[in-house]
Write a protein that binds this DNA or RNA. Structure first.
Lengths: 220, 220
DNA sequence: ACATTGTATACTGTCGACAGTATGCGCTGA
DNA sequence: TCAGCGCATACTGTCGACAGTATACAATGT
């Protein structure tokens, strides 16, 4: 163990495995062996087991008792299931944000929005992806439902995984996507809960369509 | 361990602790000690730790690294947060069920509905509670979104906990509640997704109001 | 050749022990 | 009397080892 850090091992292992799965270095359906991971990262199996429980919650792996752990698959079906939930939960966030945001929240959202706009302008996809999560984050703060926030954050790794494959192919429609966030911010400022929710739902369907195009092999 | 069963220890520990928390034998805010639980159940700390991770996912406990595990609180705020999500997720279930249910699903729902009606008629609260989860279960099968199903099932222990305190006080309005399920079933049969969703949302708000009455001390 | 059974092996499940850290209490000094 | 410090202790974190089980492969019989 070379680690000098103060952070705990399960989180470290989680992050490491999480990245490998999101980047598709660990393939869907692939088996994960506790001992192998433990050895690779220079820790014992205990923190690995903890990490696997966390990854299970993130829907990145599936644990079957006495049968082991596998990386979850992502088929077109999975993507539809995921975005139906995405639509419902983020729709709720937008609605609640429109109802509850104070001037500070609105300020934060506007800052986050600017970062998205800049990234889109420059075509910086990496920065764009970081900042849409930042935008979601301040939006969730404004919605004032920590339980909802938790649920969504636990699904973020799945979001990232689905979006990762798109990452390389979508430089073109980045600017179109920005308009969703701009409209959302506008409605939140106006306190128009109904429209804020609608815009985000539209955005979700758009993301879904894009993700489906990718898995269906219409890529490039 | 006297257990002859083939079931795994983490599940056993989870169930045991789960029941204690739901029945309010372990109080909100109370600390849980791994070693103590392990000794009580005659197992080592490993399966207890696994169980605690599961309970964390069920929102029954909160784990703070190096600080230990506590039973989560349930304030009026928590209940509002919970039912906002409840409304969104079950609303989605109802909508999707109305869109996707085949005749077998509708048959199953009708059987489950009858059981609820019987329980309500007899004023058998225990049976009523068992059967509304059964109804939800067949409804979720009809909705054909296993991810959504997972998310909801993981929240069930929280549902049970919130409803447990109500359990003794609500014999009176059981029959009124049944009408929600009756209307829901009707709309699902008709394929009326919009109204099915609306009914369930109404039901959620009604449950919320009841739970809030309880925690606010208007009980009895 | 193919099915069936036995066996080897490699993985998960569980344990007990040790290490490290947070917390409360008592001691000391102003 | 009270603040600050240090120590004791009890808990969580991590480990390595052993036990039990699923699986693949080989051997045997038909």
């Amino acid at each position: 163990m070379t680690s000098i850090t103060h952070e705990n091992l399960p989180e470290l292992v989680t992050r490491e495995l999480s990245n490998k799965i999101i980047r598709n270095e660990l393939k869907p359906g692939e088996r994960i062996f506790e001992a192998k991971i433990a050895q690779e990262l220079g820790v014992s199996r205990s923190p690995v087991r903890e990490a696997l429980r966390i990854l299970e919650r993130n829907r990145l792996v599936e644990m079957i008792p006495r049968k082991g752990v596998r990386v979850t698959k992502i088929t077109a079906q999975h993507i539809k299931w995921f975005y139906d939930i995405f639509e419902a939960l983020y729709g709720l966030v937008a609605r609640k944000a429109a109802e509850n945001a104070d001037s500070e929240d609105i300020g934060n959202m506007s800052v986050a929005l600017k970062k998205i706009e800049n990234a889109a302008e420059k075509g910086d996809i990496e920065s764009y992806f970081i900042n849409i999560f930042e935008y979601a984050s301040v939006g969730m703060k404004a919605a004032r439902n920590p339980l909802l926030e938790q649920l969504i954050i636990e699904l973020w790794p799945s979001s990232r995984r689905i979006q990762f494959s798109s990452l390389l192919f979508r430089a073109d429609d980045l600017k179109k996507n920005v308009t969703y966030f701009q409209r959302c911010s506008k409605y939140v400022e106006q306190g128009n809960a109904l429209m804020a929710e609608k815009v985000i739902q539209e955005y979700a369907r758009n993301e879904e369509a894009f993700a489906l195009k990718i898995v269906n092999g219409d890529k490039k």
